[in-house]
Simulated assay, not measured.
Amino acid sequence: MAATVMGCDEAASPNTQARPVRTLAVGGSAEGETVSLTGQVRAKDQVSLAFRLDGRMIERSIRVGDVVSPGQVVARLDANNQQNALRTAQANLASAQAVLTQARLTYQRQEQLSKGGWATRARFDEAVQSLRSAEAQVESAQAQLHTAQDQLSYTVLSADGAGAVTAVGAEPGEVIRAGQMVVEVARQGGRDAVFDVSEQIIRTSPRDVPVEIALTDDPKVRATGRVREVAPQADSVTRTFQVKVEIMDPPEAMHLGSTVTGKIRLAPPPGIEVPASALTEANAGPAVWVVDPQSQTVSLRRVDVLRYDQAMVVISGGLETGELVVTAGVHALRPGQKVRLSGAAS
Results as ranks from 00 to 15, higher is better:
164 A>M: 13
180 Q>F: 03
161 G>F: 05
168 V>F: 11
170 A>I: 05
174 E>Y: 01
194 V>P: 11
155 T>Y: 01
160 D>H: 12
160 D>Y: 00
178 A>C: 07
169 G>I: 09
188 Q>M: 10
155 T>V: 05
158 S>C: 11
188 Q>P: 00
186 A>G: 15
187 R>H: 14
163 G>Y: 02
168 V>K: 13
182 V>T: 15
173 G>Y: 04
172 P>T: 07
168 V>L: 12
162 A>R: 15
159 A>Q: 03
156 V>H: 03
188 Q>G: 15
155 T>E: 07
184 E>V: 04
193 A>R: 11
184 E>D: 08
156 V>W: 04
162 A>M: 10
160 D>I: 00
158 S>Y: 05
183 V>T: 10
162 A>F: 01
184 E>P: 02
156 V>E: 14
188 Q>L: 14
189 G>T: 05
176 I>R: 01
183 V>H: 04
174 E>Q: 15
180 Q>K: 14
168 V>A: 15
165 V>R: 09
170 A>N: 09
178 A>F: 05
190 G>F: 09
192 D>S: 07
173 G>L: 07
194 V>F: 01
169 G>Y: 03
156 V>F: 01
161 G>C: 04
157 L>G: 11
158 S>G: 00
193 A>E: 08
158 S>V: 15
171 E>C: 00
182 V>N: 06
161 G>T: 06
182 V>H: 09
168 V>M: 10
185 V>F: 02
180 Q>C: 02
178 A>L: 04
195 F>R: 07
175 V>P: 01
155 T>R: 02
181 M>Q: 14
179 G>Y: 09
161 G>R: 14
184 E>Y: 00
160 D>E: 08
160 D>W: 01
176 I>L: 12
161 G>A: 14
158 S>T: 13
172 P>L: 04
185 V>T: 02
157 L>K: 11
175 V>E: 13
183 V>P: 06
169 G>F: 08
185 V>C: 01
164 A>S: 13
173 G>A: 12
193 A>L: 01
159 A>L: 02
181 M>F: 00
172 P>N: 07
172 P>M: 04
177 R>N: 12
173 G>R: 06
189 G>R: 07
192 D>L: 13
157 L>I: 12
166 T>H: 01
164 A>Y: 01
183 V>N: 11
191 R>W: 11
161 G>D: 06
188 Q>R: 10
190 G>A: 12
174 E>N: 10
176 I>K: 09
